[in-house]
Design a binder for these strands. Structure first.
Lengths: 412, 412
DNA sequence: CTCTATTTGTTCAGCGATTGAATTATTTGC
DNA sequence: GCAAATAATTCAATCGCTGAACAAATAGAG
């Protein structure tokens, strides 16, 4: 029904300023080139007087800074361009995955200002030890950020599993985690975050969700609704609708890996039968290509497949085609259901996209009722590896952009 | 990411009042019993002074009225309860379906104040003629509404097919419509609607979407996220997320009928194979139950099936069980993907729910990863037949509740 | 029956934020 | 060098919320 999305609570006198701060800052963030105050006034519908006042607050709070005047033709006083500050608040992104730990820092503009990746097989490592190592990496990241004039205002941790509202990792099957109380474990380490009203110090979320957010905020800006599929050992999807991640009632949306593609087919460890994961998961593709998994570490399986396919290996090509077809059946269902026009292949699928896209598109063409009127785009993710960590850090700074008042109240 | 849903445009001085009018009116609409001004103040966080001023506007604009004081224990001046007005703006709901035309009027409180249904096979009738008849029924509805002190501020038309943004019915296969420009056809008749800022005079939408909206606003209030499945000849779904209908990028979401449940199964008229519709659509169930369709008008097929199942007919029971299993496979996929906890069976499925629910629940239990932690409810729709018309009319008045300022500007 | 405690609703001065017009600042083009 | 054009700021006016005081209306105690 798309009613006005009014603020949930009361709209007080001060909310007015809060909302306009967010409005103006959001415009600056979304603009292609640095807008002037006058541009912002016409874009937002506010008067120039109000925009000036709002911008003054944003400048004082280190959220935006003035850039060189954008070249403009014609007469008149030159405008001063406004850009997101490269100092001030920043977000900390953390990721624990099967074969690596990653930490990164993203500034307001979405730039990655720090990045550390530690490759290791995390499956035999106890959760507390893995998190301790991550905290150590994060400490170095914090120091590096501070040197660049950045203040970490929040952290987000990406995990390949189901996470509940409290940050408890219910189940991360491929990592071997079960009921891991991440916030409690991290609370034992000294804090790295400067608390800001409106920004949670720590968010724990599914890796597929955060990777989708990363894709949403990547440059150049893409569509505001799409399906992002992370194909690893498991297959997870992040659903972005109208520029917002859709989490589901309990935050467990996106379990596309267990969509039935052959209802009477192979049994799956989830208890169902014929789940997508059994046909398009990393292990299924590897097995179908005739590779022996024991000789192939998890983190090189995808690269090896791409190599073989590149070389024209018939088994690998057939395996990828079959996986793409299974994926296409599932994606066609999702597209029929949600009417999305963009599907992004991320995670391990990104490197395999040249071979996966054709069969996926074929299934969509055959099965999607509306494909005749408007085409569906299937493309690889623009972010590379560790997309979830970048997305995680980005999700933190997006909160500042969406609610600058909290930061301003703190920073004076 | 669930950022604050800020108003899209500029927040001007007057927006403040607009937003608080909507906030207070929304609370009155959502309240179980008539709230007092003091109740509203504590519920919204506004001061009593502001609430009084806002309520004064709402009273003057005929959007709310004062009711008998709610009995309360303890001392103190008795409160005056506030309820949505039973006069003032109302919505017109229209529906063209395969075997009937329906018109209804719903008031602010969601009560159906007028209802007309005309049963007839609409397939041989030209779209313009069907719409002309609908307009005639709507004229009578308008007069009846006016006698009750109601003003029609908008209309919504439910159609069993794909509709684009402009109201063009691209395809309604079971009705035989293709590229029918509904707004243009209706514009030839004298207007029945009093234009109000913020309320479109006519919205054309998919029947499944509007039925889902009807379910969302039915009393008593249910969950704010659910999947509503309309099982007729085709199978459509309305997806309600966080109290809002999700329409998809082009407004064509919900095509659950073409979710593949047996990818190498029966060919479907959509061009795909093994679509749900081929296993759980009305015609498929009728055929599986051994009934001859020619002897069975479309509008009695469901009733006849229920009758047979009630009587213990083995063929009917088996047909319903198989259909329920196919439906369950599809629903399990949706639940995995969207993490919904409520599925409503509407349309023809409502009457068949006693036999469909068990196999659907069985498939969900077997296939949904998270079902172990929190159960999924599957239940029949509370609204009866013509749910889409009621939902359509309700969608109009919900706009007034969400944006009362438009109506108030008009009514003075 | 009267008085007090209690809760509801209104009145009013004060204030913060936006507005719109006037003013200042800075450049291009003639 | 001057006029036109565009950008940004200043300032009185206005709108709507706040908070506190006040008026209204009832239940219960004595």
């Amino acid at each position: 029904m798309s009613l006005t999305h009014a603020p949930a609570g009361a709209v007080r006198q001060g909310s007015l300023r809060e909302l306009n701060l967010a409005l103006v800052l959001g415009r600056i963030a979304a603009a292609e080139r640095p807008p002037s105050r006058a541009d912002l006034a016409t874009a937002t519908g506010l008067t120039r007087a109000t925009v000036s006042a709002v911008v003054e607050d944003l400048l004082a709070g280190q959220l935006v800074s003035e850039s060189d005047p954008a070249p403009r033709s014609g007469a008149g006083r030159p405008a001063r361009g406004l850009v997101l500050a490269d100092q001030g608040p920043a977000g900390l992104g953390l990721e624990v995955n099967v074969d690596y730990l990653a930490v990164c820092v993203v500034d307001l503009a979405g730039e990655v200002r720090h990045r550390t990746v530690h490759r290791a097989d995390l499956r035999p490592v106890a959760p507390a030890d893995a998190l301790a190592q991550l905290v150590e990496m994060a400490g170095a990241a914090r120091d590096d950020a501070a040197d660049q004039g950045l203040t970490l205002v929040g952290a987000a941790l990406a995990v390949p599993g189901l996470v509940d509202d409290a940050g408890l990792v219910r189940l991360a099957p491929n990592l071997g985690w079960q009921d891991v109380p991440v916030p409690a474990l991290l609370a034992e380490h000294p804090p790295l975050i400067e608390q800001v009203p409106g920004v949670p110090a720590l968010v724990v979320d599914n890796e597929a969700n955060l990777a989708a957010l990363g894709e949403l905020h990547s440059q150049p800006p893409g569509p505001s609704s799409f399906l992002h599929i992370s194909g690893e050992v498991g297959i997870g999807a992040g659903i972005v609708l109208d520029g917002a991640l859709f989490r589901g009632v309990r935050g467990w949306s996106g379990e596309i890996g267990h969509l039935p593609v052959h209802p009477e087919g192979r049994p799956c460890r989830c208890g169902g039968q014929g789940c997508l994961e059994q046909y398009a998961g990393q292990e299924a593709i590897v097995a179908a290509a005739g590779l022996v998994r024991a000789e192939l570490p998890a983190d090189t399986a995808t690269a090896r497949l791409a190599e073989l396919a590149e070389a024209g290996d018939a088994d690998a090509l057939r395996a990828l085609h079959d996986a793409g077809t299974a994926l296409g059946v599932a994606v066609a269902g999702v597209v029929n259901l949600l009417d999305l026009d963009t599907v992004v292949l991320g995670g391990g699928y990104a490197a395999l996209a040249p071979w996966l896209c054709p069969p996926v598109l074929a299934e969509i063409g055959a099965r999607v009722l509306t494909a005749a009127w408007s085409p569906v785009t299937v493309r690889p993710s623009t972010l590379g590896a560790e997309a979830a960590a970048v997305g995680a850090a980005g999700s933190v700074v997006r909160r500042i952009v969406a609610q600058p008042a909290g930061w301003l109240a703190r920073a004076g």
